[in-house]
């Protein structure tokens, strides 16, 4: 039975890792761009590609940075056996609208390729994979609400098939200035300190206590 060994959460102005608030942005009303830049600085990251990402990718990227820093054995996990399973409600709609503004602008009609490449929700998976050299199973699923049952069942199927040894699973949503990311590090090592069984109920519980 896989376990939730660690988790990271970004909600509004806060970053939480394994239940501890590790960062709180001073300006509660800050837009996602300002928040992401401040968190990037706070985490002392140095990764220039971050600055060309769209908001959804920045959010997922930062949540993954925080999560994987908390995973002591990540370096030893085979990257082709590491999975990445994410969901959200609004796909890449924030960037879709930004891209379409460059199409529908009559005076300055230059559709932006730099925006267009971010008009798919799974690009955030691609960005996290590039950063951490993860090459394993993945999926981006859409659901109006976090669907703990589906996420849990499918990720367990992939574990049962031995297609992964460990996985990042969770929710990364950004639309209309609402940001919410919850990433879980799921692996097969029971008995770890703080480890919780990976079940629909435990996933739901994490979602509920942090929303």
């Amino acid at each position: 039975m896989p376990v939730i060994a660690h988790y990271s959460l970004i909600k509004d102005d806060a970053l939480v890792v394994d239940g501890r608030a590790t960062y709180r942005h001073e300006d509660k009303e800050a837009g996602v761009g300002a928040f992401a830049s401040a968190l990037y600085k706070h985490m002392e990251l140095s990764y220039l590609k971050f600055f060309k990402m769209d908001n959804l990718s920045k959010l997922g990227f930062l949540a993954a940075e925080a999560l994987l820093k908390a995973v002591p054995d990540f370096a030893d996990t085979p990257k082709d056996k590491t999975g990445l399973f994410l969901m959200n409600a609004h796909s890449s709609l924030d960037t879709d609208e930004r891209y379409y503004e460059t199409v529908a602008n009559d005076e300055n009609n230059f559709p932006s390729p730099a925006l267009f490449v971010y008009t798919l929700p799974n690009i955030v998976i691609g960005e996290i994979c590039i950063r951490h050299k993860i090459t394993g199973e993945h999926a981006f699923l859409l659901s109006e609400q976090p669907d703990a049952t589906l996420l849990c069942n499918y990720v367990r199927n992939v574990f049962d098939e031995n297609a992964v040894d460990a996985a990042i699973a969770g929710w990364v949503e950004y639309y209309g200035d609402k940001r919410h990311a919850l990433l879980m590090w799921v692996n097969r090592q029971p008995g770890q300190v703080g480890a919780t069984e990976f079940t629909p109920a435990t996933i739901q519980q994490l979602w509920t206590i942090h929303s």
């Binding site: 990445l84 490449v117 690009i123 691609g126 960005e127 050299k133 090459t135 199973e137 297609a163």
Partner: peptide, 19 residues
């Protein structure tokens, strides 16, 4: 079946097709 990721580039495939 199987799914993989190149971990190389978001809009271009890897040159070697390793993924």
């Amino acid at each position: 079946g199987s799914i993989s990721n190149d971990a190389n580039h978001i809009s271009g495939p890897s040159r070697t097709g390793s993924g």
